[in-house]
Simulated assay, not measured.
Amino acid sequence: MRSTMPTPHLHLLLPFALPSAAEAPTALYRLAHPALDRLVARARLSEAVTGEDFQRTLPHERWLARRFGLVAPDASDAAPLAPYMLLADGGTPGEQVWACVQPVHVRIAHDHLVLIDPASLELSDAEARALLEVARPLVEELGVQLEAPQPSRWYLSSERFGALAGASPLRASGRNIEIWLPHEAHSGERSRAWMKLQNEVQMSWFEHPVNEAREARGLPAVNSLWFHAPGKMRALSQSLGQPFTHVLSLAPATRGLAIAAQAQTGAPPQSFEALATTTTPTAPTTSASPTTPATHTTLVELDPFSTPYVEQDWGRWNSAFAALERDWFAPALAALQNGQLRELGLTLCSDTGSVTLTLTRHDLRKFWRRRALASLFIE
């Protein structure tokens, strides 16, 4: 479908766009963002979720699960997204419990192990397939079903893993992994079944030609697996969620939820202006119950922040923020002013919480609203 604007209601989801209050002076040093300041100052506060330090899911994952009606609004740490990721990657989740498993690098620190952001591995599809070829028989010998429609993102299904809790890779990246490892959700105990599977795969990859070649090029070896987002595919609840008619995102969880909600999906454009020429193919029909939002809204997920945030690379994060001010915030503000946009929503996330703001052209006239961007920073 091609149009001058997919819908007159736009919502921007921005993972890792909010630094903590302590990090903000460094992250925003000498950064000019007048358009975002104006939007934040005049907007209505729709939702503010502070989150907790040891939640195993990420704020934008929880926000998506709530907005699409996958979980109730008061669900504190729920985001069972693996079956929707599998759906987006071209698989068929059915009624089984699935978990997403990714090849990762775990670094040995002084007295603990640290997970490295999977995006920094630069793992090619050919490398991932070679490692999968070795791992698959070991996994299946243990009675675990494995699907890998995308080479570097695998999906496991087993009754023994149905009660496990896992942490999002970016939640644990750069940290001591001890508290983030999979455990039984009810007892808190480590899963012996998972540890056995993980150890079998780790040993098969030790001195594997893929890893020897990677190390020769100065790249980290792929030496472990990361388990996260377990759950079963459910019909999305129209009474709980407010789904979107168009969803533009590269994230498999977001795309999978959109497909299940029978929204139109596509990649996010490079700028607000490019929305005028965005092509969004109709999502395939699924067994999930369709939902029909009262208002046609486009959700655009923009994620230039995750890797620099996790790596504490505030110069790179600052540059990404400046690009969003130029390419999205300023033109979106102009579109509100001239009536091209009827409503703009912003969900800005930190690593623990999120803030959602909403505004219309009428809100821009409310000069007495003077919320500062600094007021959104999460302690």
Score class of each variant (00 low, 15 high):
residue 223 N to Y: 06
residue 239 S to N: 03
residue 233 M to D: 00
residue 219 L to N: 09
residue 246 H to F: 11
residue 222 V to G: 08
residue 246 H to C: 08
residue 232 K to C: 03
residue 217 R to D: 15
residue 233 M to G: 10
residue 227 F to R: 07
residue 251 A to V: 14
residue 217 R to F: 01
residue 231 G to E: 07
residue 244 F to D: 01
residue 250 L to M: 07
residue 234 R to P: 00
residue 240 L to T: 10
residue 221 A to T: 06
residue 244 F to W: 12
residue 250 L to Y: 12
residue 228 H to K: 06
residue 224 S to P: 07
residue 217 R to H: 13
residue 230 P to M: 05
residue 231 G to Q: 09
residue 222 V to T: 12
residue 242 Q to R: 13
residue 236 L to E: 05
residue 218 G to Q: 02
residue 223 N to F: 07
residue 218 G to L: 05
residue 219 L to T: 04
residue 238 Q to M: 09
residue 241 G to K: 02
residue 247 V to E: 04
residue 235 A to V: 02
residue 230 P to Q: 02
residue 250 L to R: 15
residue 244 F to P: 00
residue 247 V to L: 06
residue 241 G to I: 05
residue 229 A to R: 14
residue 247 V to S: 06
residue 227 F to L: 10
residue 250 L to I: 04
residue 222 V to A: 08
residue 222 V to Q: 10
residue 239 S to Q: 12
residue 244 F to H: 11
residue 218 G to W: 03
residue 251 A to S: 14
residue 240 L to A: 14
residue 241 G to S: 06
residue 234 R to S: 11
residue 249 S to M: 09
residue 242 Q to P: 00
residue 246 H to M: 01
residue 254 T to S: 15
residue 236 L to Y: 05
residue 232 K to F: 00
residue 233 M to E: 08
residue 234 R to V: 13
residue 229 A to H: 15
residue 251 A to G: 01
residue 252 P to A: 14
residue 225 L to E: 01
residue 247 V to G: 03
residue 253 A to N: 05
residue 229 A to T: 12
residue 252 P to D: 12
residue 217 R to G: 00
residue 237 S to K: 04
residue 217 R to S: 15
residue 249 S to D: 13
residue 228 H to A: 13
residue 226 W to P: 01
residue 239 S to A: 12
residue 248 L to K: 14
residue 251 A to T: 12
residue 242 Q to A: 10
residue 235 A to G: 06
residue 226 W to E: 04
residue 229 A to G: 02
residue 239 S to Y: 11
residue 228 H to Y: 15
residue 247 V to D: 08
residue 219 L to Y: 06
residue 230 P to T: 01
residue 242 Q to W: 08
residue 238 Q to S: 14
residue 236 L to R: 02
residue 219 L to P: 02
residue 231 G to I: 09
residue 221 A to H: 05
residue 248 L to G: 12
residue 224 S to A: 15
residue 221 A to E: 12
residue 248 L to T: 13
residue 226 W to Y: 07
residue 229 A to L: 09
residue 240 L to S: 11
residue 229 A to Y: 13
residue 225 L to R: 00
